[in-house]
């Protein structure tokens, strides 16, 4: 049962087409990623889902409601964390959360949320004195304080250092465990790979792929590559004859085996049978980065 349905979404700004034709469904309890290069139309897409923009074409349905017509009801049910939205400098952490809590019919306890997000010691700290990671956690807290069924998080970890980024990921996983469906916009591969159950890769306003992170990778580049140095002379044919293996080459003292499926297991079994030890064994697989480049022709950020 999808909680978000986007069908043939189209949005223009003047002559510029921001979103050409985007369709996807998000199931309840899922972390769904919208991935794509800058300017691909990710933010516009989720802004249409959040009801901040009116689509020029197509359908958007959130929890069975229309984001524009039923905006009042949906705002109670959907928490939104926007890219680059800040708070007044002198606003304190606890004040911000209590104020936002007052907007909702059934808010969560702000004090508990503050502790959960590790902002307990900062409750009386003004916004301007918070670090980037703390600001981001506060922003996420504001999106969650209304006890939403869906949280839309845009560029969650942009501008955070690697540690803060990892902390934020852990937080998002905990939020999902509470049953919140998460629509996540990102251009970090690592983030998408770690967090998302499924991903829509958007490029130039269109969905170019829609699958789980591993599904995307194996669809684009199913080949695996095994490198090792054999402890004894090895006849290449022993490996080349395996059904999983597509090629065996040599690179100096290294043997490089390319193949698909459980090629690693097949190769190591053969080596074991022949009492050959594989030194410096490495398995190389395509990453989401490779899939992304393949799909969009863009280098991913970072």
């Amino acid at each position: 049962m999808p909680v978000i349905e986007v069908t043939n979404l189209h949005k223009r700004y003047g002559e510029t087409v921001a979103v050409d034709d985007v369709s996807f469904d998000v199931a309840a309890g899922e972390i769904f990623g919208v991935l794509g290069p800058n300017g691909a139309g990710k933010t516009t897409t989720v802004e249409c889902v959040a009801g901040l923009r009116v689509p020029d074409g197509g359908e958007v349905s959130v929890l069975g409601l229309d984001p524009r017509r039923d905006a009042t009801r949906l705002r109670q049910l959907v928490g939104v964390q926007l890219q680059e939205s800040q708070l007044p400098d002198r606003l304190r952490v606890a004040e911000a959360l209590e104020m936002y809590a007052s907007f909702y019919r059934d808010p969560t306890d702000p004090a508990r949320l503050i502790d959960e997000l590790g902002l307990g010691e900062k409750r009386n700290t003004p916004y301007q004195k918070l670090s980037g990671g703390q600001k981001q956690r506060l922003s996420i807290a504001l999106a969650l304080v209304g006890n939403p069924k869906i949280a839309i998080l845009d560029e969650l970890t942009t501008g955070l250092d690697p540690q803060a980024r990892r902390d934020t990921w852990g937080l998002i996983e905990r939020v999902r465990e509470r049953g919140v469906t998460i629509l996540l916009v990102t251009h970090f591969m690592e983030e998408a790979e770690r967090l998302c159950d499924r991903l829509a890769v958007i490029d130039k306003g269109r969905v170019v792929a829609l699958d789980s992170p591993t599904g995307l990778v194996s669809a684009v580049a199913p080949e695996q590559r095994i490198r090792f140095r054999p402890s004894a002379p090895l006849d290449d044919r022993l490996l080349a004859d395996l059904p999983q293996v597509s090629a065996v080459t040599r690179s100096g003292t290294q043997v490089v085996v390319t193949g698909t499926g459980d090629v690693l297991h097949a190769v190591t079994s053969v080596l074991a049978r022949n009492q050959i030890i594989a030194a410096d064994l490495r398995l190389e697989q395509a990453t989401l980065d490779d899939a992304f480049v393949e799909l969009t022709g863009h280098r991913p950020a970072e």
Binding site: A50, G51, L52, T72, R75, Q76, V78, G79, V80, L82, E84, S85, Q86, L87, P88, Y100, F103, Y104, R105, L142, G146
Partner: peptide, 15 residues
Amino acid sequence: TYRERGVLRRLATTP
């Protein structure tokens, strides 16, 4: 300032 910093936009996503 509130508009520039997205304070107003953020409020627009809440009830």
